[in-house]
């Protein structure tokens, strides 16, 4: 029959000849192959010390951004929480006081902002939904932890470092 894919291969099963039956030549060629691998450079990346370079559109841990004056951009509109397919984001909004204008950009801000990293699927929809460009998934891989409660990241872990420090 004609082979449609052109990939068909006829396999003959001939009885082994003497050299093949002697087994030793085959072992020697096997040793040669593994011997070559012995001197090959290992491909391992020693993870905690070395890190693989992420691609440009890698989505890692979230960070809440500050504006050019160091004020938090988030206005606690809740669009990120709404867009989140995994329902990983919760927040509690609060009103900005007069003496807090250097801390928050808008009149409203997130007093509590929590992301459950166990729920998060790193889809990046929060980043797309945010009208204030306040949240980006530009961080590292989320580190492991022992307790579930430690995977709920609050503002202490999410908000960017202040500018002048």
């Amino acid at each position: 029959m004609e082979s449609l894919s052109g990939k068909r291969k006829l396999i003959e099963s001939k009885p082994l000849n003497f050299l093949e039956r002697a087994y030793l030549p085959a072992i020697l060629s096997g040793l040669r192959i593994t011997g070559k691998h012995f001197f090959r450079k290992s491909v391992t990346i020693r993870y905690p010390e070395q890190k693989r370079e992420f691609s440009e559109n890698f989505r890692g841990m979230h960070s809440l951004k500050r504006d050019e004056e160091g004020r938090e951009r988030c206005t606690a509109c809740g669009l990120c929480a709404l867009s989140c397919p995994a329902e990983a984001i919760t927040m509690i909004a609060a009103e900005r006081q007069h003496d807090e204008e250097h801390l928050y950009r808008e009149e409203k801000y997130a007093a509590v902002y929590e992301i459950n990293m166990l729920r998060c699927i790193f889809c990046g929809l929060c980043e797309e939904a945010c009208p204030k460009e306040a949240i980006y998934l530009d961080g590292d891989i989320v580190p492991s932890n022992y307790l579930r409660k430690d995977f709920i990241y609050g503002k202490d872990k999410l908000v960017e470092e202040p500018l002048n420090q």
Partner: peptide, 13 residues
Amino acid sequence: KVAAFFQDRVGPN
């Protein structure tokens, strides 16, 4: 270690 080198790995380190 030898096993690791034969398999292009690093081995215990």
